[in-house]
Amino acid sequence: MSLAGKRILVAKPGLDGHDIGAKIITLALRDAGADVIYTGLRKSPDYIARVAVDEDVDALGLSILSGSHHELLAQTRTELAARDAADIKIFVGGTIPPQDHQALIDAGAARIFTSEMTIDHVLAELELALTETA
């Protein structure tokens, strides 16, 4: 349980309404000992960044199944930077085609998680990413 005590924000940016993946991961993180905040649907990157900062989370997960992952990651990073919080690690999950993974990493995502991955794998990768510096 090395996610114990980690504060994690799971967010649904934009208009995408498929939330079962975000809910599954929120519950799994809680059961792994983390303190998780789930934003619910239809949140703007501005709002997400504000909550990430105020709640001082260790990780921010963006759950996106609408195809707008490039734009939403970029907007979220901009909002975090504006709040002096560029150090908060961002994870992108959902329907992310393999050919987009590298571009998202290059754009600042710490890891990409897709729905085929097992929960154990996601938790392990998250834990690893949180121990990495920068």
């Binding site: 934009g14 208009l15 309404g17 703007s44």
Partner: peptide
Amino acid sequence: LPTQCGYDPTDPIAVAEVGK
């Protein structure tokens, strides 16, 4: 999605999703 969720295409929350 903007049409589905009741937003006009000019609404800030909708702009990224117009016609997708």
